[in-house]
Write a protein that binds this DNA or RNA. Structure first.
Length: 385
RNA sequence: GGCGCUAUGGUGCAACGGUUAGCACGCGGCCCUUUCAAGGCCGAAAUACGGGUUCGAUUCCCGUUAGCGCUACCA
């Protein structure tokens, strides 16, 4: 029986809501809207080092500006720690995970670069080979001894040494990897805080998520999560990894590329709907040549099958073109509120324009819009009055 | 280094074995306009490379190259 889908957007508060996150949020929202599903918002704040609680409001504001509304949450992983610890204990008890007493910096089980000895691996971590550390096969007595010594430990997943793990991705198709390629990843850090792999799976199971729509940077780690679903005896959701958004130099979009937080676009005077239209077309197409798609069209036509597998470059000129189009074509009564808001922010607003002179005001907006590209252009024009 | 993903003009997409390879942004030119935008018309510009499979490959397979991702007690 197919019940209505449940999806989630799960940002971590380590920065503002950037363009890539905004598009992931938009796709989740469009998917939920199109299918009559539910969108939950979950804050993944388990990394105490990088986590900045003060950034959460900014992310929520960004989503609100974007027009991405959620039905449940926000949930905070930092308030659900007991659940992750219980899951980790369950896995250890069942033999699917084990305590690891290695120091974080000297763990020998990763499969990172086994490059040549001698050449300056300066501050670089130890050379790794895909071999499990000894902790994996410690006897109960040895573990008890380590425990008595008070040696801190992390909990690692016991990845099968043989066989393969596979999952189905709605965008990339069937994926299969050799288990031997997967290291015994950490579930619970020695400070008892969960890693992404553990918390994301525990939450997605608990929150009954049916479709995990997220950035393709998570594609390679999905087998680990598949293994966790199996160990936790839960059915995995349908995964849908969307390609990444790159800067003009084809590297991952970052602060170096200028404004990457959606708040900056709001400040500059972009219309949310134009931004949505532009963003939706970065990695997705309805199948034909149609481009000017109002949000209602986007909702109507959005399908995971139309999502591309190729990374896309963020093209600002095109975003500006979309904005100009919306500025010209939006029904005047839809545009006026945005202009009013813009003028208020610029301190140029006059109360009468919202009351007695409303008719005149909207007529003026209609005349001026023809030569504007950004909402902020109205401020420039308004100073003339 | 290992593993994986991807590959159509500068950019975003369409074409999911058979098209003169289409649309849009941007760029150039012309028209319109007192000017600037918007709009209209025209133009330059692409299937990364090499092998296969096939009557026929942008499309399917293999290799090369390039880019990206993962390989953290980040997410």
């Amino acid at each position: 029986m197919t019940q209505s889908p449940r999806v989630r957007f799960a940002p971590s508060p380590t920065g503002y809501l950037h363009v890539g996150g905004a598009r992931t949020a938009l796709f989740n929202w469009l998917f939920a809207q199109h299918n009559g599903g539910t969108l939950l918002l979950r804050i993944e704040d388990t990394d105490v080092e990088r986590n900045r609680p003060d950034l959460v409001d900014g992310i929520l504001d960004g989503l609100k500006w974007l027009g991405v509304t959620w039905d449940e949450g926000p949930y905070f992983q930092s308030q659900r720690l007991d659940m992750y610890r219980a899951a980790a204990e369950r896995l250890v008890a069942g033999g699917a995970a084990f305590p690891c007493y290695c120091k974080a910096s000297s763990y020998a089980g990763g499969d990172a670069s086994p490059d040549k000895e001698g050449e300056g691996d300066d501050e670089g971590p130890k050379v790794h080979k895909a071999l499990p550390c000894a902790c994996r096969d410690l006897s109960d007595a040895d573990r008890a001894a380590k425990g008595r010594e008070g040696i801190p430990h992390a909990i690692r997943f016991r990845v099968p040494r043989e066989g393969t793990t596979s999952f189905e991705d709605a965008i990339f198709g069937k994926r299969e990897v050799q288990n031997a390629e997967i290291e015994d990843f950490v579930l619970l850090r020695s400070n008892a805080l969960p890693t992404y792999q553990l918390s994301v799976v525990v939450d997605d199971i608990d929150m009954r998520i049916t479709h995990v729509i997220r950035g393709a940077d998570h594609l390679s780690n999905t087998p680990k999560q598949t293994l966790l679903y199996q160990a936790l005896e839960a059915a995995p959701p349908i995964f849908a990894h969307v390609p990444l958004i790159l800067g003009p130099d084809r590297t991952r979009l970052s602060k170096r590329h200028g404004a990457t937080g959606v708040g900056a676009y709001a400040d500059e005077g972009f219309l949310p709907e134009a931004f949505r239209n532009f963003l939706a077309l970065l990695g997705w197409a309805p199948g034909g040549d149609a481009e000017f798609l109002r949000t209602s069209d986007l909702v109507k036509q959005f399908e995971l099958s139309g999502v591309s597998r190729t990374n896309a470059v963020f093209d600002r000129p095109k975003l500006e073109w979309f904005n100009t189009q919306y500025l010209q074509k939006l029904p005047i009564e839809e545009l006026v509120p945005y202009v009013a808001q813009q003028l208020k922010r610029a301190g140029l607003w006059q109360e009468a324009w919202g009351g007695a002179e409303h008719g005149w005001f909207s007529h003026a907006v209609d005349l001026i819009r023809a030569r504007t590209r950004l909402l902020s252009d109205f401020s420039t024009a308004a100073r003339a009055f």
